[in-house]
């Protein structure tokens, strides 16, 4: 993996003349985890789509850039709310999808190693329908890790999981994605309070940075300072227009 760059996006986006967001400015520091927290419909996912380079349906006026001045092409991995596993492929084939889509030989040894790290080694030959929701998101995380990109964009990847699976996935993702520049879109204040080195609050009024408690992440879910920060984020969400 090459050195993780910072991410920068500023501008406004419309779709068929309807404003989606902006003008806003999003900064995600290099090699750190930034949560973009906000209610549904404020354009959080649109920010992610623009950074991923897939927002063809959008009209965007502004700038998308990496902190090191190079292009973001080939340096981004994406993990969405839906696991996006291909039902006709087994877990190993799913996590090596990127290599095959680029015409490279699937790196099976590395896949075995990555599946080991996400705790799916015993399930590598299964099809997605044979996995639980949590296991499917682990497979999606493994596929994201296989891409080995310095920038990882997360679009509410844990929101469909039950509370326990979600907390476990948060721990796993925080451990395995450490050192990469992560921009994590979420509508869950508790999630942002646990994971973000930086938390950006996105509302119709714009984007504001909220400083999280000091100390390592993932923060302990029931530690008083985590809960206090979660409460503060929720209050800010409630008080925004």
């Amino acid at each position: 993996m090459s050195a993780a760059p910072a991410l920068h996006l500023s501008g406004r986006a419309t779709i068929d003349g309807m404003p989606i967001f902006g003008p806003v400015s999003v900064e995600a520091p290099a090699g750190e985890w930034t949560c973009l927290l906000g209610p549904s419909g404020v354009g959080k996912s649109t920010v992610l789509r623009l950074l991923a380079g897939v927002g063809d349906e959008l009209a965007f006026e502004g700038e998308v850039a990496a902190g090191d001045g190079s292009s973001l092409d080939n340096r981004v991995a994406l993990m969405a709310q839906s696991d996006l596993l291909m039902p006709w492929l087994d877990v190993t084939a799913n996590v090596t999808l990127g290599a095959r889509l680029r015409g490279d030989a699937p790196p099976r040894d590395r896949a075995r190693d990555v599946l080991e790290r996400v705790g799916l080694a015993a399930h590598s030959a299964k099809r997605p329908h044979a996995l639980s929701g949590g296991q499917r998101q682990r497979a999606a995380l493994a596929r994201t890790l296989m891409e080995d990109r310095p920038v990882v964009l997360l679009d509410e990847p844990f929101s469909a999981l039950d509370a326990r699976s979600r907390a476990l996935m948060q721990d796993l993702a925080a451990e395995l994605l450490a050192g990469r520049t992560v921009l994590h879109v979420t509508h869950d204040a508790a999630e942002a309070a646990r994971l973000g080195h930086h938390v950006l609050l996105m509302t119709r009024e714009g984007i504001a940075s909220v400083t999280p408690p000091a100390g390592p992440t993932p923060r302990v879910y029931d530690a008083p300072e985590t809960l206090a920060f979660q409460g503060r984020l929720l209050r800010l969400l409630m008080e925004a227009r």
Partner: peptide, 19 residues
């Protein structure tokens, strides 16, 4: 979502079609 994933993975249109 699958097509977006393929694009982020820098797949060619031909491979996106067949795979």
């Amino acid at each position: 979502g699958w097509l977006d994933l393929a694009r982020v993975m820098t797949a060619t249109p031909g491979r996106t079609l067949w795979r």
